[in-house]
Simulated assay, not measured.
Amino acid sequence: MPTLHVIVASTRPGRIGLPVARWFIDQAVKHGGFEVNMVDLAELNLPLMNEPNHPRLRRYEHRHTKDWSATVDAADAFVIVMPEYNHGFTAPLKNALDYLHSEWAYKPVGLVSYGGVSGGLRAAQMIKPVLNALKMVPVYAGVPIPSVMRFLNDDGEIQADEPVENAATAMLDELLRWAGALKPLRDTGAA
């Protein structure tokens, strides 16, 4: 079974990213196509790019980078749960992506974006060139969650409506197809 890492891109105190990620992980577990893990960038707490060598060389000196490399290497696919801040994506997400290079290659990625009326779509569009530069494959199906606070219940959990849940299922189906299709490229070390 392929491994899916769900990356929580917000690190702000009081963030809604954790409830959104927990909701999506529940959807992924119900889907049944992946072994699912959460990767919380707040817990990872990577310092701002402090490796002396270019990530392409994979000559990492710091334990946090070696651990991050192993985490990313272990995944067959990713979902990034991302807010939209000022029409863009978060700095911790960009930093986490830039820390590594070949570990990301030939792996599909889906985007669960959230925010106000736009549902985080501006941030989702903005991150795609970065993902492409890392040889990742952003899947067409995405999960934009507009006016995300309306889905937050009294227990602090997300209760999405049917269209949002259907979008999650469609994206998971696409991720599963792409993870299988890209596996030969990952297996040959083409990255």
Rank of each mutant, 00 (worst) to 15 (best):
L57G: 06
L185R: 08
R22V: 12
A191V: 06
E84V: 05
H5T: 15
R58P: 01
L48D: 09
A170N: 12
A160W: 13
V148T: 05
E162H: 07
G142N: 07
A77D: 05
L134P: 01
G120A: 01
A181S: 14
V109L: 11
V137N: 01
P92C: 08
Y114Q: 05
D187M: 14
G120N: 03
G116I: 05
F89N: 00
L176D: 09
D154S: 14
M38G: 09
V81K: 03
A75N: 03
P2N: 06
H54I: 06
I127R: 02
L57E: 15
P144Y: 05
M82T: 07
Q125M: 12
S118G: 08
N37C: 09
R186K: 14
P129G: 12
R22Y: 04
Y99C: 03
N50I: 10
P146R: 08
S69I: 00
M82D: 03
S10D: 13
L134F: 15
G119Y: 00
H64V: 07
R186E: 03
A42E: 13
H5I: 15
V81C: 11
L175C: 05
T71F: 00
M1W: 04
M82I: 03
G156D: 12
A190M: 14
A133F: 15
R122F: 03
Q159V: 15
N166A: 15
G110K: 02
W23R: 00
V148E: 04
V117L: 14
V8P: 01
K30S: 14
